[in-house]
Nucleic acid binder design. Structure first.
Length: 203
DNA sequence: AACCAGGAGAGAG
DNA sequence: CTCTCTCATGGT
């Protein structure tokens, strides 16, 4: 294994210990079928949305006894606005209601979560990516956390933390090791990126 | 009270 | 293929 990645893992583990809070369910082993389904639902609701709002939606689904793929499938087919209303707190509720229904339909019409869990990861990943509303990150989140398959999730955080190291190396290897040069250069990059008030055309 | 959280689809070029 | 826009909420 790459030592850089291993070092990062060790450093993060030392700093944070074991994952807690919202991760309690996602990292739980083994999981019940109901728990796997909740993870799938959460993965879709979490798209471009903070976790607190996802929990609000999850709680509404539970209170309405709809926090399962089977219930979502049944409700979504006959009453989409009703499903959308339940997941309102996590935003983009009309889109996500469709996405949720598509995912629920896939699992329900193909023998359920446990059945899908038993097939090869490659096949499942392909099928998940064909679903409307499931892109690479959501597909891999479902594979990893709902189906316990070894699909590493590359999200914005992962990208940010790895790119930082890589880019820092590039800059420091090509510039004189001099804080003044770093200061000037970095300041210019920020100015370039943000632009000046009046020059940009947003709003 | 504007900003932040931080995926994917659709349509344009 | 890459870019930009759209979808929408709740907490700060």
């Amino acid at each position: 294994m790459d030592n850089k990645i291993t070092d990062l893992y060790k450093a993060l583990r030392k700093k944070h210990g074991r994952p807690s809070g919202q991760w309690r369910l996602w990292c739980k082993r083994p999981k019940s079928t109901a728990e796997r389904e909740e993870v799938i639902i959460g993965a879709i609701l979490a798209q471009n949305t903070n976790w607190k709002n996802v929990e609000l939606s999850l709680n509404k689904l539970k209170k309405a006894k709809r926090c399962s793929l089977d219930e979502i499938y049944k409700l979504g087919k006959r009453n989409m606005p009703g499903l959308a209303e339940l997941i309102r707190p996590s935003g983009f509720y009309n889109s996500k209601a469709k996405y949720l229904l598509a995912a629920a339909a896939f699992f329900c019409e193909n023998g359920g979560v446990e059945r899908i869990k038993n097939q090869k990861i490659k096949k499942s990943r392909k099928q998940l990516l064909e679903l409307k509303g499931v892109g690479p990150e959501t597909a891999d989140s479902i594979l990893l956390y709902a189906l316990d398959k070894p699909a590493f999730v590359i999200d914005e955080y992962t990208r940010r933390i790895l790119n930082y190291d890589r880019l820092q190396k590039i800059f420091e290897s090509r510039l004189p090791r001099n804080y003044k040069a770093y200061q000037d250069f970095h300041a210019l990059i920020v100015i370039e990126g943000k632009g000046y008030p009046g020059l940009t055309n947003h709003s």
